[in-house]
Structures are given as structure tokens and as C-alpha cells.
């Protein structure tokens, strides 16, 4: 059994259909804790000690945010900057997060086709996530491919509900803890791994 911590950062959660749908069923999952950063720290005053102990208590960390200007919303960047301290998360003595599983959950307006060499956004999505990936590696964590919901404004309610179902399935698999990391990392997205499962 793994304990899963979703670090969720969305400055306008109430307006986000996609994220409301994705997170609607999360509360019912045992061993999954939703930690809503913009709700906890409206003044950006992150309680670093509290965040550190939360991280310590959990085995799987999810960085869940909407994709804003090819990155995470400001508070999440601040979270990375202030919580993942040198000497605690990284550095020669920093190994508090060692071997914890981490992955990014993203909602993006653009379609998957738009994130490609010839596409509108010119690079595959994974390349934009390189800073997150390297941060995870720096902290000696196991980085999984991202779970991505593309083209959110094109999805109707039932399609969104479908995505949410897949997300919940992924979380339950991670809670159960019988994961073949090798097979997961062979795919670009966790979505792809789930669909072949």
C-alpha cells in the first residue's frame, strides 16, 4: 500500500471544468490526499516545515496543475523553490525524497498534435517538462511520464468524466503499489501505458 499526495496548484480552480472533473472522485479514494496549494496558501506564504512533513509521510507525489505558458502556475514554482531545500531534498546530505515516485498531471488547452516538431507549439510536451523531470532526478526521486489531458476546452462533460475515470484508475493502481515502473517509463504519457494495460 502506497500513500499518494496530490499537490494541486490552480489559481482559478472554480472556473476549471477539466480539473473539477478530474478531482471530483479523488476524495473517495483511501490513502490519497489532495493538497490544494492555492487554497492552503492564498497569500503565497508556504509553510515549508508542514510541506516537508507531508512529503515525508507519502510515497507517491503527484504534481498536478494546468499548463500555463509552458509551465506551472506561480505558486507551484514557489513551492518547488522553497520546499525542496538543499540539504534536505537534494545535495550530498539531502535524501529525504529518495526513491519516492513522482509524476506530473497536466491539463492543457492545446491538442497532442499541437505539441510536436511541426505543430503549433513546436516541441513535444515532454520537452517542456524537462525542468520538472530534472528536479525530480536532482532529488533522487523516480520520475514517471506525465498524465496529460489535452484539448480541455474541446472535451464535453462525458469525455471529461472518462478522463477522470482513467485518472482515478491510475491513482488506485499506484495506491495498491504493484507497479511495473519499467513498463511505465517506456511510454511518453501514463495515459498511453494505461490504454495498453
Amino acid at each position: 500500500m502506497n500513500k499518494v499526495l496530490i499537490l494541486f496548484a490552480h489559481p482559478r480552480f472554480e472556473k476549471s471544468r477539466a480539473n473539477r472533473a478530474l478531482l471530483a472522485g479523488v476524495g473517495a479514494l483511501p490513502s490519497v490526499r489532495l493538497h490544494d496549494l492555492y487554497e492552503e496558501y492564498p497569500d503565497f506564504l508556504i509553510d515549508v516545515e508542514r510541506e516537508k512533513s507531508l512529503l515525508t509521510e507519502h510515497d507517491v507525489i503527484v504534481w498536478h496543475f494546468p499548463f500555463y505558458m509552458y509551465g506551472a502556475p506561480a505558486l507551484f514554482k514557489q513551492w518547488l523553490d522553497s520546499v525542496l531545500e538543499y540539504g534536505w531534498a537534494h545535495g550530498s546530505k539531502g535524501s529525504a525524497l529518495k526513491d519516492k515516485i513522482v509524476f506530473v498531471t497536466l491539463t492543457a488547452g492545446g491538442t497532442r498534435q499541437a505539441y510536436a516538431a511541426g505543430g503549433h507549439n513546436r516541441y513535444p510536451l515532454r520537452e517542456f517538462l524537462v525542468p520538472f523531470e530534472q528536479t525530480a532526478v536532482l532529488c533522487k526521486m523516480t520520475y514517471l511520464p506525465p498524465f496529460v489531458v489535452h484539448g480541455t476546452h474541446l472535451l464535453d462533460d462525458s469525455q471529461l468524466a472518462g478522463q477522470a475515470e482513467i485518472y482515478l484508475r491510475l491513482l488506485s493502481i499506484l495506491v495498491r503499489g504493484v507497479v511495473d515502473i519499467e513498463s511505465m517509463t517506456r511510454y511518453a504519457y501514463l495515459n498511453d501505458w494505461l490504454s495498453t494495460d
Binding site: D81, S82, G91
Partner: peptide, 10 residues
């Protein structure tokens, strides 16, 4: 201030 991470050590 608790923002040790911002103090340059890292």
C-alpha cells in the same frame, strides 16, 4: 523568513 532555499546555498 523561512525561505532558506532562496538564500543561495542551493
Amino acid at each position: 523568513l523561512q525561505d532558506h532555499a532562496w538564500d543561495g546555498r542551493s
